[in-house]
Design a protein around this nucleic acid. Sequence first.
DNA 1: AATGAATGAGGGTTCATTCAT
DNA 2: AATGAATGAACCCTCATTCAT
Lengths: 227, 227, 227, 227
Amino acid sequence: MGTHERKEREKEQRREEIVNAATKVFFEKGLQNATMDEIAEAAELSKGTIYLYYKSKEDLYLAVMNVGSTILFDMFDNAVAKAPSTLERLLILADSYKEFFAQHRNYFRMFHFLQNQQLHKQVSPEMREISQLHQQRVWDLAVGILRRGVEEGLLRRDVDPAEMAVVLWSATNSLLMQIDYQYEHWKHSLGIDMERVLRHSTNLLLEAIMTEAGRAQYRRHVAVPVA
Amino acid sequence: MGTHERKEREKEQRREEIVNAATKVFFEKGLQNATMDEIAEAAELSKGTIYLYYKSKEDLYLAVMNVGSTILFDMFDNAVAKAPSTLERLLILADSYKEFFAQHRNYFRMFHFLQNQQLHKQVSPEMREISQLHQQRVWDLAVGILRRGVEEGLLRRDVDPAEMAVVLWSATNSLLMQIDYQYEHWKHSLGIDMERVLRHSTNLLLEAIMTEAGRAQYRRHVAVPVA
Amino acid sequence: MGTHERKEREKEQRREEIVNAATKVFFEKGLQNATMDEIAEAAELSKGTIYLYYKSKEDLYLAVMNVGSTILFDMFDNAVAKAPSTLERLLILADSYKEFFAQHRNYFRMFHFLQNQQLHKQVSPEMREISQLHQQRVWDLAVGILRRGVEEGLLRRDVDPAEMAVVLWSATNSLLMQIDYQYEHWKHSLGIDMERVLRHSTNLLLEAIMTEAGRAQYRRHVAVPVA
Amino acid sequence: MGTHERKEREKEQRREEIVNAATKVFFEKGLQNATMDEIAEAAELSKGTIYLYYKSKEDLYLAVMNVGSTILFDMFDNAVAKAPSTLERLLILADSYKEFFAQHRNYFRMFHFLQNQQLHKQVSPEMREISQLHQQRVWDLAVGILRRGVEEGLLRRDVDPAEMAVVLWSATNSLLMQIDYQYEHWKHSLGIDMERVLRHSTNLLLEAIMTEAGRAQYRRHVAVPVA
DNA sequence: AATGAATGAGGGTTCATTCAT
DNA sequence: AATGAATGAACCCTCATTCAT
C-alpha cells in the first residue's frame, strides 16, 4: 500500500533529521563532548526516539561520517566526469581531495579522529558494514582511474594501482592533517609552509609513479616546477 | 650529605615507578579510559601520592610519552652512530623508525593519539616544555642528516631539508598507522600488503629527493628494485 | 487529557519528595557536610534523578529554604489576619517571628547560615529569582504594616518604615541567633537570660519608634513594664 | 638557664610567624578554602611543623581570631582611656566598634563567620578556653562602663548593664554584618542607606536606655537629631 | 624540633542507555 | 512510534592529618 511506503519515507526522513542534528552537534563539540541530550534537543525529538533510529552514539557518529563519505564521493565523481583525459582525471582527483579538505574540514576531521580512537566497541555491525561500503566506493573510483592510467601507459606498469592509491592518499592525508591542526606550529617553529610542502609532495609522488610519457604529458599541464 | 642525595634518588625512583605503572595502564586502556585509580593501584601507591609527583593525568600521560621519545631518540642516535656515510645514516634512520614501530608499537600509538586530540588543557607548562624538547631533539637529528645529505650533493639542492623531513616522516607515519590498525583490512579487502607499500613509498620518495649522484649511490646499497 | 495532568502532578510530587529528603539531610548536616549521596538515599532515588529535578546541591538548598520562607510567610499572614488593629498586627508580627524561631529552628538557622556564605556560585538564576521573591514577599508584608502604623499616627513620621523594619528585624535576629547557639553561655557565664533580653530589646525599640499616641495604645496592650 | 628562656622565646616567635602566615591566607581564602599547604608555604615552614604548634586548622583559625580580639580590646582600651566622662566612654566605645569594623573588616568577618558554623569539632579545649578569655575581656570592659553609667545616673536603673551591653552589641553587630555583605542590596533594592540606619539604631537604643539626665547630657554631645 | 612524603576517604556532577507508558 | 524519567557507574582531584626519619 501507499500507506506503507509513506511510513517508510517518513522514517527515512526522520533518520535524516536526526543525522543533521547530530552533525551540527558533533561538529561543534566532537564525539566525546557531544551528548545525546544535545543531539535530541537539536533534533527536536526525545532521547528515546534517537535510540529508536540509531543504536548508539557511535552509530550515529558513523552515520554522520557516511554523509561525509558521500559528499567526498560526489565531489570525486563530479570532478572526474568533467575531466577529458585520464591524466586530468588523476590530477583533478588530487585537487578534489584538497577541495574537500578546504570545504568540509569538519568531515575531514571526523575521518581521522576515528582512526586514532579505539572506541569502536559500541558500533553495531550493520553500521560498520555500511560505513565500509561508503569508503569502498570512494576507493574503487580512485583505484579505477589509476588502473586506467597504467593501461594507458601514463603510470608505471611495475607499480600496483591500488598501492599507488594508498601511497598517494596516505601521504596527502598525513600532510593535510598536519595542515589542519598544526599549520602554525610548522610555520613558526620551523619556518615551513605546509601547503607548499603538500604541493611538492604530490608532485614528487606523481612523477615518481609516472612513466616518461606520463611525466611529459604532466609537465605540459603544470607549469610549476618542483621547487 | 648523602642523606639528601639518597632522598633525591628515592624520589626520582618513585617518579619512575609511577611512570611505569602509568605506562602499563595507558597502553592497555588509552588516555580516556585509563583511570587514576588504576594507575595508583598498579603503582601500589595511593592516588594522592600520584598527584604528589604528577600534577594531572595528562601530565602523567606526557611523562609516559617522553619515555617513548627518549627511546626513539636513542634508537636513532645509536643507529646513526653506526652508519659510516651520510646516505647510510639516512637509510638507517628510516629503518630505525620502522624498528621503533615494530618494537614499541604502544608508544607509536600514543604519539599519534595525541596529535588528534586538543585535550592539552590540563597539561602543566613545565611538562609541555619538556615534552616539546624531547620531540625537538628527535627532529633536529633527522633534519641534520638531511641537511648533510644536501651539502654532500646526495640530495636535491632545490628542496629544503626540513621539508624533505616532513614529507618522508609524514608519508611513513601515515602508512605505519594504516599498518597498525588496518593491516588486515588492506590485506583481505584489497589484497594489498601494506608493508610492501611502505617499502615502495620510502623508495619512491627517497629517489624523488635525490640527485643523480645520490640515486647512484643509493642503488648500490639496495638491491631491491621498486617493484 | 488527564494523563498529562497526572504526569505533572507526579512530577511535582517527586520534587517535593526530594526537597523533603534534602531538608532532613541539610538539617542534620548543614550545606557543606551534606552529600548528594545521602540526599539521594534519603529520597530513595538515584543521584542522577536528583539532578533531573534540581540543577545543583545549592539549588536544592535554596529549594529547602524556600519552604522555610513560605512557612514564615504563612505564619505572618495568618497572624496578621487575626489581628484587629494595626498595633496588634505589629505586635503579632514580632511574636510570630519568635514563634517561627521556636517551631522551625532549623529553617531559621538556614537563613542565617546563608547570609554569611558567598557560595552562591552554583545557584541557577531561576532558583535565585524564586528565592528572592519568597524573601521579598515576607519583607513587603512587614514593611506594609509599619507604613500603615505611620499613617495611623502610631509610629514616628520621621523614621522611614523600611528602616524601622531593618532595625527591628536586625536586632531581633541577632538576639535570636545568640539564643540559638549560645543561650547557655550567656546564662551561665554572665547570668543573662537572653529571652528576657529579647523581650526588653523589642520593647525598647518599639517604644523608640512610636509616637506618644502609639506608646499609650501600646501600654494598654502589654502589662509588662520594661523591667 | 638563659638557654631555656631563649628557646621559649623562639618558640613563641615561631607561633606568631605561623599565625601571621595563617592570617594572610585565611583573610584571602576563608576557612574552607584555605589549605594547610598554603599556610605552611606562607610561613616558610613545613606542614608538619605547623601541626607541631597548632593542633588543627581550626585551632589555627581561632588563634588568628584571638589576634583580632586583642586588636579590638586594645582599640576599646585606648579609646576609653582618652574619654574624660562615662558618657563619652560609652559613646566612644560604640564608635570604636564601628572603627574596628572599618579598619579590620577581615577580623570582623571571622568573628561572625564562626558563629554560623557548626565546625567546632576539631577545636582543642585549650584553644577554645583561650578564645573565650579573649572575648570575656572585651565584654567585661564594655559592661564595666555601662555599669558605671547606671551608677552615675546616666542609664536606667531598671535595666541590667549586661543586658544593655547585649542589646547594643547585638543590634550594632547585626547591622554591620548587613553593611558588610549586603550594603548594595539594601541600597538599590530598597533605597535604604544602612549606615544611616545604623546611626539611627544606635541613637534610638542609647536614648532608650538612658535616664532623663543621661539624655540631656547626650544631646549636648550630639547635634544629630534622630532623623 | 623539623620535615615532607604518604595517605585515602571523599564528592559533586555527567551521561549513555533503558524501559514503562 | 514516541516519550522522558530513571538509572548508576564513573572519575579526577583535594587536603587535613600522620609518622618515620
